[in-house]
Amino acid sequence: MFEARILQGSILKKVLESIKDLVTDANFECTANGFALQAMDSSHVSLVALMLRSTGFDHYRCDRDVTMGMNLLNMSKMLKCADNDDTITMKADDAGDVVTFMFENPKADKISDFQMKLMDIDTEHLGIPDTEYEATVKMSSNEFQRICRDLSSIGDTVTIAVTKDSVKFTTSGDIGEANITCRRTSDGDMKEEKVKTEEDGEKVHNTKSSEGQNVDIDLQEPVTLTFALRYLNSFCKATSLCENVRLQLSKELPVVVQYLIEDMGYVRFYLAPKIEE
């Protein structure tokens, strides 16, 4: 028996919206640890890894490990029938071939259940090695989305160059080229700044707001890599899950684009770089 209840159903809805265009069919692995997925897109260029830890659910029961193969477009169709403030419960029998999604509104006076047929999916599971990345960039997820969107109107690929002080995004296409540089926010800017006002005396003004870039860079080695914008734009569908996005880069390795899901886990996207022929 597998049973998982999430109070904030909108999280599950958002997760599905962020991955359903990248991956068609995927196996969800339900274990005592949580509800996880690892799947590649059909061209084997990108991979999504999702983890929703059991401790993040309001109720979680998994008597034995269950693999549930689902068509993500169909799953998304079902989850769209849940309101954002609904509680969502997923249920499956150990040997069953359906998963049940149950939606409950906050007043608990409307309860819906949707059954979806499961499928047998033959997939390769890839071992992702633990890697020390040469560069880690943390920035506003909205800004990252904006940059990827803006650059994709000029070119098809983006070159990301990380130095200790900045991260630079470059593209070029038939109509011209574009460079966007985000400077690392200095430590002083990230901290609370005290502002004196005549009326209130001392007032604390927090500058770490959604305005500005709030770019944090952890660098071992400067790194420059090129990626297809089409995939990055797809990853950015996860933007509403987290205020910040974390990019991890190393020479000639796939980039990791991570969105944390508060109190629950993460959705991570891996994208293979464009390399010299």
Partner: peptide, 14 residues
């Protein structure tokens, strides 16, 4: 020109 690499070369199949 740069070509798109595949993930298969980076991660081990299990």
């Amino acid at each position: 020109a740069k070509k798109q690499s595949s993930l298969a070369g980076f991660f081990e199949k299990r």
